[in-house]
Amino acid sequence: MLFFVILFACVDLLLNGRGDGTIETLIPTFTDYIFYLFAGKTKFVPMPGVYFDFPALWTLFLALCFYLTLPYPLRELTGVGKNILLRTQSRSGWYLSKCIWVICCIALVFCMLFGVAALFTLLTGGSFTDTVSARAAQIAAVDGFFTTLDTPDFGRYLLLPPLMLIALSLWQLTLSLLLRPVVSFLLSVAELLAAAFYMNRFIPGNYLMFLRAEPFETGGMNLPESCLLALGLALSAVIAGVLLFRRYDILPKE
């Protein structure tokens, strides 16, 4: 499913980038493809006649990533994991192994994403630069953004989505110990929607939207701060999870 969403995003960018005589056809760079999927939405300013238009593609992709890492850990715990746990004798060890599993899952998703983006770049004759084309940024932003300038040196920002997604997925894992997994998932999705609506440094989903990053939004999310926050969230999720799991009753759950 994730693969098809990525595919759709790449094709969508190509189709929306077609020229019409007055505008040249966009040949997206490698970074354009990634940017398009994680563009998100420009800052929403409520005004009369302006409606909130949530970023469907961005939300769908991230929700699927959250869903991907959701069911397995607790399902394994109430199945074969019981026997493994009794033999490894370590609750912390089990929990850390699941954290590593979450990280690997997200890493694989991004390998797939970069692979598909690279393939599209090759097939369409695009360039492997870390520049976001002005046209791609405008297409991604729909109505909310206008620029004639390309954005160079954006490659470093590609680090942000995997880091922040890992952090949020680890928190989802931790929260699924306290709440039912489905509730933990709904909270993750609700956080994404909140981020789309509010541009706020304290809502982590904002760091997953490239249109809210410093090069595109004045006072937007800056890279060092974003990376630090992601690492901090990830570490706190792991520590909280290990501590919680030590007191966790391993029982069959829905």
Binding site: T78, G79, V80, K82, L85, L86, Q89, R91, R246
Partner: peptide
């Protein structure tokens, strides 16, 4: 101890891969 050091258990349904 987190768990009994030497234990074998079949609790509820057997679960394997």
């Amino acid at each position: 101890l987190s768990f009994p050091p030497s234990i074998g258990a079949l609790i509820e349904n057997p679960a394997f891969l």
